[in-house]
Structures are given as C-alpha cells and as structure tokens.
Design a binder for these strands. Structure first.
Length: 573
RNA sequence: GCUCCUGUAGCUCAGUUGGAUAGAGCAUCGGAUUUCUAAUCCGGCGGUCGCAGGUUCGAGCCCUGCCAGGAGCGCCA
C-alpha cells in the first residue's frame, strides 16, 4: 500500500485489533480502503466481518471492541461503526493537509522507488520490415510505451527493445520484387511503400510462375548464406524501414533502447536447439524436433521444422538466452495481441525447463477490429498508422481554427499534433488492454467527455490560471502556507491526489495503463467540478493562496500522469 | 472436440481483487456564460450485471452447468 493516509490508518487499525483481541493472532492482513461513499467518511475497514469467523463473535461487536480498544488518534476526526460491522473513518483536515504537503514536496509526487536496482526488458511494437505500420500496430506500441514509462517512473532500469520482423522467407520474394518489379528510379528513391508494392507484385508472380518461385527461394538461400549483394539490399530494407518507423515513433513520443530484430539472434538458433537436445527436452516427431509439454497441460511445440529450418519459437527462446546473458533482467514483458497466448505459454514453459528464472510476462491485448469485422489486407480495409495520425491531427486542427481562442498560427500545428495524437492514445489506453476494441473514427478521435483532450484541457486551464495568478500576485512559493480544505470538493481533491502514487504502482503491477487513465479522468472530473464552483483569483488572500496551491498540485499530477501514458500536455489550448 | 478471453444502461466501457443504495462517457431531454478557457459544469431519463444453480453474514466479482460472441489448437509470426 502506497497511499500515505491508508498506511498510517491501517497501522492504527492493526494495533487496535491486537490490543482488543491479542497479539497471538496475525493482523497483517487487515486492510483500509477509500470509503465507497463519501457519506461514510474518507476510509473504511471491512475486516471485522472477516474476523468474525476466527473470533467467533458478531462482526458488529468486534468492530465496537476494536474502536474502543485505543484512544482515537489525532489523524482521525471520527471513527464510527456502521451497518454490519464497517469501521468508517474520517481524517483530520490538518493532518490530511500535512500529508498532501509532504507528497507535493517530493519531485515525483510520491511515486515509490519500487524498481531500484531492478532491470526489466519490455518488448513491444515490433513491426515487420518492408511493410508500413498499420492500425494493428498501434496497441502494442502505445500500451508498451505507457508500461515502459510507468516502470521507469518507478525506478526500474527499463530496456525497451523493438523486436523487428527482419528475417524470414519473405525476403527471397522481396529481393526478387525489388530487382525486377521496381524501376531504377524507384530503387534509387526507395521507401517502405515501394517495398510493399514490390513484395505484393513478386508474391503474385510466385503463384503462377514456378520458376519465379524457385528464383525467390534461391535469393533467400543466398541471403541466409551471407551473399554480400543480398545482404546489402536486405540491410538497406531494414534501414529504410527503421527510418520510416522512427518518423512515426517521433510523433508518438516512443523511444527504444534497442532495435534487435529476429536476425540478431539467428546465429544462436543452432546452439539453442543443441542445448534443448543436451537436456533431453527435445525429441524428433514426424521429422520435426519438438518439445513435449504434457506436464504443463500444453500442446507440444516445434523448435525445428522437418525441413531443418527454425521457427519463431526457436528465435524467441534464443532471444531469452541472449537477454539473460547480456542484461540479466528480473523480468521480460512482451506486448502482443491475444492470438499469441498459446505460443507464449509454450515458449515460457520451455524456458523454465531450460532453467531460466527470469519472470516472463505476456501482456496481451484484444485485437482491434471494425464494426463489420476484422481488418484484413485482402479486403483492403487496413488503415495505415500514419493516415490515422494525420486524420486525428487534421480534425484537431479544424477545431482549433474554428474555435474562438486566439492561438498563434505557428503554434497551431504542434497543438493539433498533441491533441489529435493524445486523443488516439487515450482512446486506447483508457480501455483495459484485454478488451477487444471496435474501431470507429468517432471513438478514436473523441475530443469530449472521457477523452485525451478533456484531460489536456483541464491541464491547460490550470496553467492559464497559474499564469494569471503570477501576473496579478507574483510567483507562488509552493511550499509556503497550507492548503485549506473547507469545501467538500477540495477535500475530495486532496484525497484523490493522495492516491496517485498507489495508482501508478497498481497500473504497473497489473500491466494496465487503463488503471492510471481512469484515475486521471476522475481527477480531472473532480477538478472541473471544483473549477466551476470555486473562484480562485477572486477569493480572499488566504483562500486564494490555498486554492492556487491545490490547482498547482492537480496540474502536477495531470501532467506527470499524462506523460506516463505518453500523452503531451500543452500549457495552452 | 479441447484451451483462453468476453458478456454490466440504447451505444462504448469502469467497477481498487468478496462489502453498504452497481458508476462514468456518448446519445437524448432540460438548465448554467456581466465570472479565472463552454473541448466545461449541474440536473432528468436510462439496470433481472447473459441464463440457472451453488458457496457465505454478504456475489457484478468465487465454484458448477448451460447460452451467445471472439481468438487459438505441429512445422506462419
């Protein structure tokens, strides 16, 4: 538990239980949670009901004995037993103010340093070389980026690795397409789009031209044997692809520490398989080398095809070996879609059999689909990622230009980028990763209600307020004076702010950035309510200073929180 | 056939791991701007939490069985 208030209160509750019923019981399991309804107070403990069985007493009697066992601590304004045996607590206002002040004085608003000295590798995005990124890549990229940032904020040593699809049978076809389906001019000005076209044309020829197919195979073999010419064009495909991916990653504020594609590991495959054989984990079946996983209640998996070639399972195992040897990570997180669940279960099981103790996590997410069905290249309804971003930005730009706000022309483009892309990211991140997303332009680019721009707007309004305050009253010393929490909204805001560190931790542990998104939305909602009802600059000095401080804290949490989601926070909208 | 996921308001989704009268956004209807940004706020309407049992003081959440949808299940990744 990271919420300072909860931590302090649960300590008191534990000592109250052990005073009332004796230290011979273990009271560590007792919990304090935020009250389910404001009318019950600020926090509640529901565990008198749980304890009823072991203590063989009525829950209400237990709760009463507990609350009478110790004098009420100063931090609590009131402690009451209610209903079936709930212990409801209201915290003392001054104490709450102090707690808030302490957290606000830290440089990261109390986010715990839970990952100190711990390394975690996050494997996400992973597009295929020579194919444009499309809408199917957005979830891995955006969710992976958010998890990456959240883990870094918690102090983990994060290695973000983009495991590109840069190796495989498609390169024979592609090399033929490149040499024979493109003009000299096109080869000179190569782009991912041209590569895609070359691939498609070449692939179509393989279907009705046997000799073409043979030629493709021959080029692939040459490439795999290290033929200098083929190696050179292949490397060029990769360079051009990464260059274009980076253009998108820059717009999305995504950064990788490593770009190690499948090819990086292909020299290690032979040895990986030998290791499996040495440990008697693999056996031949129908000409292929397989690992049986019956003891894990999983189907067997193939680590070498009957033609002698290796497949993705082999590459993935070799990747773990390489990563463990080089970085010795405590954990590796893979961010891919749900269809690969079985594959990951299998290859995780093989890694365990090989003795790797690294925690392997598969963060899977639901597929994105259209209302009428899945995206498919064949139906030609695939939306390219860049087109999606452009559309979002142009919609945001239209709103800026029709608005009454006087935004300088030179700022508009950058603002539209921040808002449009923020909208797309938030639309994704605000959902539990494991739910399937039905894509509609309307939802992906929502600018009102529970949306990215709603949060950005709340933040920009605070910035504007703080600017005006500085103009009229001079700079604010964030550490001087206390925050008065006299109104219900302000008190709720304070309690909500206290939840930030714990929420970040919970988002990390559950691999759900949506936990953080949800929190930020309710915080912004509370703030908007506060803003509507509570004058700041027009209040008397004491109240004004207090409210400005509270606003500044909300701004800090909104800004930090949105940055953890990879969403920009313009100070003016 | 087997495995995994999902089913909550007209639509899209939350529900802090079993707590008190199930919450938001969108849509719809009605209100708020001489006031710090109306991309906002306030209010109304809207529910047999897929169905049926079970566990317990207490179930949207846990167990069993059905129903419906999605995904996967030996040489693609």
């Amino acid at each position: 538990m990271v919420n300072k208030c909860e931590t302090a209160i649960v300590e008191w509750i534990r000592s109250a239980f052990s005073t009332a019923f004796g230290v011979e019981y273990d009271w560590e399991w007792l919990q304090v949670v935020p009250a389910t309804d404001r009318k019950f107070g600020d926090f509640q403990c529901n565990d008198a009901m749980q304890a009823a069985r072991t203590l063989r007493m009525a829950p209400r009697a237990i709760a009463e004995r507990v609350t009478d066992a110790l004098p009420r601590p100063e931090m609590l304004e009131s402690v009451e037993v209610a209903g079936a045996g709930f212990i409801n607590m209201t915290v003392n206002k001054e104490w709450l103010t102090e707690q808030l002040q302490e957290i606000a004085a830290t440089d990261n608003f109390g986010i715990p340093n839970a990952g100190q000295g711990r390394t975690v590798i996050i494997d996400y995005s992973s597009p295929n070389v020579a194919k444009p990124m499309h809408i199917g890549h957005i979830r891995s990229t955006v969710i992976g980026c958010a998890v990456d940032r959240i883990y870094r904020a918690l102090g983990y040593n994060v290695i973000a690795d983009n495991h590109l699809g840069d190796w495989g049978t498609q390169f024979g076809i592609l090399i033929m397409g490149y040499r024979h389906c493109l003009s000299e001019d096109e080869r000179g000005n190569l782009s991912v789009e041209l590569l895609e076209r070359a691939y498609v044309e070449s692939y179509n020829k393989t279907k009705d031209d046997e000799s073409w197919l043979d030629a493709c195979r021959a080029e692939l073999v040459k490439l795999q044997r290290g033929d200098p010419e083929n190696q050179a064009v292949w490397k060029r495909f990769i360079d051009i692809s990464i260059n274009e991916f980076d253009r998108i990653y820059r717009r999305l504020d995504v950064h990788f520490d490593l770009y190690r594609g499948e090819s990086y590991y292909h020299e290690m495959l032979e040895e990986t398989v030998r290791l499996l054989q040495e440990k008697s984990l693999a056996e031949v079946s129908e000409g292929a080398l397989v690992v049986k996983l019956e003891d894990e209640a999983l189907p067997l998996c193939i680590v070498r095809k009957s033609d002698g070639g290796f497949n993705y399972t082999t590459t993935d195992i070799a990747t773990v070996r390489s990563r463990v040897e080089e970085f010795n990570p405590e954990k590796i997180i893979y961010v891919t879609d749900e269809r690969q669940q079985l594959h990951f279960k299998q290859f995780f099981a093989v890694c365990r059999k090989l003795g790797y103790e690294t925690c392997l996590e598969h963060l899977w997410f639901g597929l994105m689909r259209l209302p009428e069905g899945t995206f498919s290249t064949r139906q030609g309804n695939v939306i390219k990622l860049e087109a999606l971003l452009d559309e979002a930005v142009s919609r945001a730009l239209a709103i800026i230009e029709n608005g009454e706000r006087d935004i300088p022309v030179e700022e508009r483009r950058a603002l539209a980028e921040a808002i449009g892309i923020g909208a797309i990211k938030y639309a994704d991140l605000s959902h539990d990763p494991q739910t399937m997303i039905v894509f509609t332009w309307e939802k992906a680019l929502a600018l009102e209600g529970n949306s990215g721009p709603y949060l950005q707007y709340a933040y920009a309004r605070i910035c504007s307020l703080l600017d005006k305050h500085a103009e009229q009253f001079g700079a604010l010393d964030p550490l001087s004076g206390s925050v008065l929490l006299d109104s219900a909204v302000e008190r709720e805001l304070a309690l909500k702010l206290m939840q930030f560190p714990g929420t970040v931790l919970r988002a990390a542990e559950s691999y759900k950035p949506s936990v953080l998104a949800e929190y930020l939305f309710t915080l912004a909602q509370l703030y908007s309510r506060f803003y509507q009802s509570s004058p700041v600059l027009r209040s008397d000095e004491g109240l004004r200073k207090s409210r400005v401080k509270l606003c500044a804290m909300v701004a800090t949490v909104l800004r930090d929180g949105l940055h953890l989601l990879g969403i920009r926070t313009p100070s003016r909208i």
